[in-house]
């Protein structure tokens, strides 16, 4: 008991310290690295909260993929660093901001600590109904069965975000390939890793997706792993990003959502409602949706990281 609190206390203290450092440090690159560490520490915090699915997602997307995105950005913005650092706010503004932030944090803390006991929870209802989904992982059941519309709309959010990113393409590069052409150094460490890790990563990813039905895991975590492997091969120059005009790429983007919608509509005659699953077939249908979504998520996340096209579609 005491040991548990000490561990939690130590972990959370580290999280807060790294967070404060990330915000206060002058150099942007240092801040991004600080954020990467912060994300990974947070994943541990999630484990301590017994929310392993969230821990996996935070480690993969929050700490992992977001950091990749931010590192690419901060490197490109390097040239503006000097002028950016010159723009520091005045003393008064910083003191006022600190006062406001502390007030907000304290008020929030008081409110959170004052939440009612016993805590209202949907866990009993989930436990009551989870058997009909055939799943063992309650979070997956919530995501794919009980609150499926949220997951469906979230897949649409990913597509919308990618459309918005592609809207930023300079006109002359429309239909071209995102990102720069990475130089290939066939004997370099990066190329070596890009040949070694992806097969492992793909296997682990598929395993995480498969096991997510009954144990922590699922399509988001799996999709992120696959996206990361793809990004690694791109950055090592082993493969090149396909041009965004390619029909197959666009098909891969929408496949997950289309499958989700199709099975959702099939639920109307077969199970009485949109996004309902027929008795006994829930688990295989859910796994099928997850498999298709995993591919779409991987492609979408990867494309979100590489950004809008920066060159024509010549190879």
């Amino acid at each position: 008991m005491i040991g548990g609190i000490l561990v939690d206390g130590g972990l959370l203290a580290m999280v807060v310290v790294v967070a404060v450092w990330t915000i206060l440090v002058r150099d942007s690159f240092a801040a991004v690295i600080g954020y990467a560490c912060y994300g990974l520490l947070l994943a541990f915090a999630w484990v301590r909260l017994a929310a392993i699915d969230a821990a996996l997602t935070e480690a993969a997307i929050g700490g992992g993929l977001t950091s990749v995105l931010l590192i690419r950005a901060v490197v490109r913005l390097r040239v503006t660093e000097v002028s950016a650092q010159a723009e520091t706010p005045g003393r008064l503004q910083r003191i006022l901001a600190a006062v406001l932030s502390v007030a907000v944090a304290v008020a929030l803390g008081v409110v959170v600590l004052g939440l009612p006991e016993p805590a209202p929870s949907l866990a009993p209802r989930v436990a009551e109904h989870i058997a009909s989904t055939g799943l063992g992982n309650a979070v997956t059941a919530v995501l794919l069965a009980f609150r499926a519309i949220d997951t469906l709309l979230e897949a649409v959010v990913l597509v919308y975000a990618l459309i918005a990113v592609w809207a930023l393409t300079p006109d002359r590069f429309w239909g071209g390939r995102p990102g720069p052409k990475y130089a290939v150094d066939p004997n370099g460490m990066l190329a070596y890793l890009a040949r070694l890790l992806p097969p492992l990563g793909i296997v682990v990813g598929i395993y995480v997706f498969w096991v997510g039905a009954d144990l922590p895991g699922g399509k988001f975590q799996a999709g992120t792993l696959l996206a990361a492997m793809w990004l690694l091969t791109i950055m090592a120059g082993v493969t090149d990003v396909p041009p965004i005009s390619r029909r197959l790429l666009r098909g891969a983007l929408v496949a997950g959502t289309v499958v989700f919608l199709a099975i959702g509509f099939a639920g109307v005659p077969l199970a009485g409602a949109f996004l309902a699953y027929p008795e006994g077939f829930a688990k295989p249908l859910i796994l099928f949706i997850e498999a298709a979504s995993m591919v779409s998520i991987a492609v979408t996340l990867g494309l979100l990281v590489v950004g809008p096209p920066e060159r024509g579609d010549a190879p």
Binding site: L49, A50, A51, D53, A54, T57, E58, I61, G62, L65, T66, L69, L70, A119, P120, S121, L122, A123, P124, V126, A127, A138, V139, A141, V142, L143, F146, R147, D150, T151, E154, V157, L158, Y160, A161, V165, G218, F220, L301, L304, V305, G307
Partner: peptide, 28 residues
């Protein structure tokens, strides 16, 4: 909200997962 053998209420956990993905797309 931990109850009945589950370490926590799964609904907020699911909301967090959705939220993390949405936040990532906004960042991107």
């Amino acid at each position: 909200g931990a109850a009945l053998g589950m370490g926590g209420d799964p609904v907020p956990q699911a909301l967090v997962i959705t939220g993390i993905v949405v936040a990532f797309s906004a960042t991107a």
